[in-house]
Design a protein around this nucleic acid. Structure first.
Lengths: 116, 116
DNA sequence: CCGGATCCGAAGCGATACTG
DNA sequence: CAGTATCGCTTCGGATCCGG
């Protein structure tokens, strides 16, 4: 059954990567995870380097997968914000783990290789 | 300091994604995490759908980032296997979290949306 | 068996300009 | 403010052939 376990494990992982893959999705999720809700332009500024086109596309996909909720307010001009859904918040463990590892890794690569 | 925290957080995340991004790297890591060492062709078969070219490329990059160790045995013909390094094993939390979430997500998407 | 080298198409991504 | 539309590049990734 080892083989079956591995196969399922890999399929799950592959599905997850399809959802969260790409250059920006995990960044956006991580951002909304630490600060929600955020408006479109806030996210744009916070990430820095992403174009409106990409941000729009990624947010739309995250919304379709029910990880992010989009709310429109009938102000003038219209204002929109984004926040994690309950399901999106279930990624908490993943996002925290990635963030922690990332900070640690960043410390590591900032040091000369000989120190390792 | 909230802004600074967020910026560092995002930078760390971005660095991590650069290391583990792409279509296959996390799959390979996850595979080696649950079963090590593995030979080249074993990984190839287990993943299914990856070409030798890509596998070779991904493994090389993972090796350069010291996440994976490659060992060559002077048999005839030569045999090679791959395993996680200590540093690679430090991704344990991340890989476990991703795997758990992935399995859960897979159960979710296998159900009709009305049940959610 | 374990890859390297080359070629090529697809797609991801960015720059810019524009709209309600 | 919150996006869209168009264009073009660059990278990713697959197919195929080759070599130790």
């Amino acid at each position: 059954m080892k083989q079956t376990y591995c196969t399922n494990h890999l399929r799950s992982m592959a599905d997850t990567l399809e959802l969260l893959g790409g250059k920006w999705k995990l960044l956006i999720m991580s951002l909304l995870h630490s600060e929600s809700p955020m408006r479109f332009s806030e996210i744009e500024r916070a990430i820095g380097g992403i174009t409106p086109r990409m941000l729009s596309k990624e947010l739309k996909e995250l919304e379709q997968n029910e990880l992010v909720e989009r709310r429109v307010y009938p102000t003038m001009p219209v204002s929109v914000d984004y926040r994690l859904t309950d399901y999106g918040r279930s990624l908490d463990t993943v996002l925290t783990a990635l963030g922690d590892w990332g900070r640690n890794h960043r410390r590591r690569i900032m040091q000369p290789a000989v120190a390792r």
